[in-house]
Amino acid sequence: MNIFLRELKANRKALIIWSVCMFLLVLSGMSKYTAYSSSGQNNALFNSMPHSLKALLGFGSFDVTTMSGYFAMLFLYIELTVAIHAVLLGAGIVAKEERDKTTEFLIVKPLSRTAVITAKLFAALVEVFVLNIVTLVSSIFMVDAYNKGADISGEIVRFMVSMFIVQLIFLSLGAALAAFIKNPKASGSLSAGVLLASFVVSKITDLTDRLNMLNLLSPFKYFSYKDLVEGGGLSAGIIIPAILLVAVLSALTYFFYRKRDLNV
């Protein structure tokens, strides 16, 4: 319990900054909605764009002149941002004791490495959840402020549920990488590199249908946001494997951390 509280306290300032940034991202994103939706001309403009350009801009399959389509486009950037937070948090929370040379302090306390990781992962889980809720509340308010059509709050909630699972995947990925690689200072940059690679993969598979197998490598593509926009629900066939992936990555974190020779 003490490690859990200590981690929450240590990351409090960072979490506040991330929360403010998420709010500002949603705010600035939504404030541009009027430009997209204001006139029917835009629709014609977007339709005349080649698919690859639309895909690179993030709205290959959405109608961005409607609120739900526009939010789906904005959501990709929101999701990327919180994924960066999650992967850095996961890597940092495992690696920080070694990076800051506090391992000797912690490991000579009468508790197992398993207990250390459990406390840290729970603290990270709480932080990821808080950021998700902040994003959810900001999105609902800001969308409501600009929306002239049908209410899409239910859709936003489903988006955020899918985002939470993506956050968990990146959190556990960062933790597992930090527990695995020897140099604690490299874990953050390596995790961020893996995340960017998976984002690039998601952009490549946007451009063409032939590489859809690659989507397995990119948690950004696990959920079909096109279906969500069209009013579909979240599919259990995706949620369950995604949760299993989180479980496997967490188990690997424990496994690697237990076997690890800790740097001091």
């Binding site: 200590r6 240590a10 800051d100 040379k101 506090t102 000797e104 302090f105 000579v108 001091v264």
Partner: peptide, 10 residues
């Protein structure tokens, strides 16, 4: 335990 070099949480 007293380590040779003492580092603590900032």
């Amino acid at each position: 335990y007293l380590p040779s070099e003492v580092f603590y949480y900032d």
